[in-house]
Design a protein around this nucleic acid. Structure first.
Length: 575
DNA sequence: GCCGTTTTCGGCCCGACTGTTTTCAGTCG
């Protein structure tokens, strides 16, 4: 029972309690516990089994939730959740995914009409039964009907990279409004979350109506959800929602802070304001007693008025940022310019589309001073993985390239060596020993048990020629869950054997995730951020990895490939 | 259900918008 599963159980309890119209603060307690457990950079089970420690030391975990964690770990079940599920079928939770249908209205259709799933809801709307309920009308019924399709869509969240493309397009589109003075995107997009549920645009304009009119003509607009004096929401063709808010200039910083969130970060901020005799909303910071405006023009002003540093958006997750600020050691987060090398990429030798020479030129053009060519090994037959002979042949070619190019740019002889299903590596040690840089990764047998997969990875870590584990959990965002793996054991071994872990910057992977990267940092394991490029353009995904690294609180010194190869070489045991 | 240099009880962030109302509840972020 890992942290993610405990968090999922608590989240489900929160959903069901909310549906049952329980005390909203109790619901919030479960939600907060789910988040705190999910964000924790160490295993709950480790804390439970340590007699010196107590879960109640974790903020948001009291006596009751500590016991529920212990119950989940020892039995694999939560009696309370099982009981709740007996009262309420799991499918009713789908009802609350319909925009406009919250817990109250969902409960009403369930208890009054016996509607327990999206298809039943659709039928009830079409039979015009829903409009008869108290608090419902024909318009509500119509909007529910329209919303069912949105709720049925499997993936509501976009990859950050996809959201980024839309965000930049919208920014350009709205920038042509003459009265527009400032524009910024907020929300989880600005915080750099790996997936984004919607976009929040903030603008300052003398003429709000002009901005909204322009917004209403956005080419990909599917429907207008609502429009008021200061707020307008639209839905795009892909179902993605975009909110636009027009705020006065003296409130821009406060609004940006407010709508960037996260919600939990803001709750803490408000609490702190309250203690100082201040109140804070999206219009600014005000004195509680006199309502006098204190700050709001810039985010820095808002935070300063509360005696806090301007947190980078990526850190605003109510994890450790307030603690860091208090101790005065908010980390100086890594930036794209800190990167000196890229240690994971493919060429035409396997499934890439560019040659070694082309990849080297493209990497140089991007300001890097070294790369590792890491084509697949033979087991990955679909990609024509390299046999020992072909690997040695490629490395000889790289030697010739380095000899011929007297520039300071360096190509490393690398390999992405498959960790076989049966354990062990896909290439013999006498071949691996001739590489400068060996990444080991799991591609097959991802459905094996956590024990099997963990042992395979531990075996790779113990191999003296392996430098790093690539995409350590195998997840593909919106497509495939991470395989089962005991990450705490992997990290312990990585720390012990001096091996590195990858943060794969491909926007579909972003693997390790932010929480695991933070855990690695805590254990002193260097992270290598790499693009896994299969083409020249593939080298440009580095910035997505940097975003995620920042969310983990990583600095340049936590990331191995901010160093020169001469420095890094010592770390990975090459002489 | 959590939490405590105002507290072990009584708080727990706050405002915009919509639809159904006729002063407000529900939803959302």
């Amino acid at each position: 029972m890992n942290n993610a599963k405990i968090a999922a159980a608590f989240d489900q309890v929160a959903d069901l309690l909310e549906f049952k119209n329980s005390n909203p603060f109790r619901v919030r307690a479960y939600r907060k516990a789910a988040r705190v457990v999910g964000d924790l950079p160490e295993a709950i089970s480790d804390i439970v089994s340590d007699p010196e420690r107590s879960l109640t030391d974790i903020d948001g975990i009291g006596k009751d939730l500590a016991e529920k964690c212990a119950e989940l770990i020892s039995t694999g079940h939560l009696q309370m959740l099982d009981d709740l599920l007996e009262d309420t079928p799991r499918t009713v939770l789908d009802l609350m995914r319909v925009p406009g249908l919250g817990p109250k209205k969902a409960a009403a259709v369930f208890s009054e009409l016996g509607v327990a799933s999206l298809p039943e809801l659709k039928a009830a709307c079409e039979a015009q039964q829903v409009r008869g309920l108290k608090g419902f009308g024909a318009k509500t019924e119509a909007s529910i009907l329209a919303g069912i399709e949105i709720a049925s869509a499997a993936n509501q969240r976009l990859l950050w990279a996809e959201a980024d493309a839309i965000a930049e397009e919208l920014r350009t589109f709205l920038a042509s409004v003459e009265s527009l003075e400032q524009i910024e995107l907020a929300g989880s997009y600005r915080r750099g979350k790996d997936t984004v549920g919607d976009l929040d645009i903030l603008v300052v304009s003398r003429d709000a109506a002009a901005v909204m009119d322009r917004f209403a003509t956005y080419p990909d607009l599917e429907s207008i959800i609502g429009r008021g004096d200061t707020k307008m929401s639209i839905r795009l063709g892909n179902g993605f929602q975009v909110d636009l808010r027009v705020v006065p200039a003296e409130s821009f910083g406060a609004a940006l802070q407010y709508f960037t969130g996260s919600k939990d970060h803001n709750v803490i901020l408000r609490g702190k304001a309250k203690q100082m005799g201040l109140k804070i909303n999206e219009y600014g910071v005000y004195r509680t007693d006199t309502d006098e405006y204190v700050a709001g023009r810039t985010e820095a002003d808002v935070y300063r008025s509360l005696g806090l540093p301007e947190f980078p958006p990526e850190l605003r997750e109510a994890r450790q940022e307030f603690e860091w600020a208090e101790q005065g050691d908010l980390p100086k987060l890594i930036e794209l310019d800190d990167m000196r090398g890229d240690l994971h990429m493919h060429t035409t030798a396997t499934d890439g589309t560019a040659s070694i020479d082309e990849m080297a030129a493209a990497a140089q053009a991007r300001g890097l001073s070294y790369i590792a060519i890491t084509d697949h090994s033979q087991r990955v037959s679909m990609a024509r993985g390299l046999t020992p002979a072909r690997a040695l042949e490629q490395w000889a070619e790289i030697d010739r390239w380095n000899a011929a190019n007297k520039s300071r740019f360096l190509i490393l002889k690398g390999i992405e060596c498959d960790i076989l299903e049966s354990g062990g590596l896909d290439l013999p040690d006498d071949v691996l020993s001739q590489a400068d840089w060996v990444m080991a990764s799991v591609h097959y047998g991802q459905k094996q048990s956590a024990r099997q997969i963990t042992d395979r990875i531990l075996g790779a870590i113990r191999n003296p020629y392996v430098s790093a584990i690539a995409h350590p959990t195998g997840r593909l965002l919106n497509r495939r869950e991470a395989y089962e793996v005991h990450m705490d054991e992997v990290m312990q071994a990585a720390a012990e054997y001096g091996k590195l872990l990858e943060l794969n910057a491909n926007p579909h992977r972003l693997d390790l995730n932010d929480v695991d990267c933070a855990a690695a940092k805590k254990r002193g394991i260097p992270i290598v951020i790499s693009t896994d490029a299969h083409s020249i353009d593939g080298l440009d995904v580095m910035r997505f990895g940097i975003k995620q690294a920042r969310r983990a609180g990583l600095t340049a010194s936590d990331v191995a490939n901010t160093q020169t190869w001469a420095q890094l070489k010592k770390r990975v045991g090459r002489s």
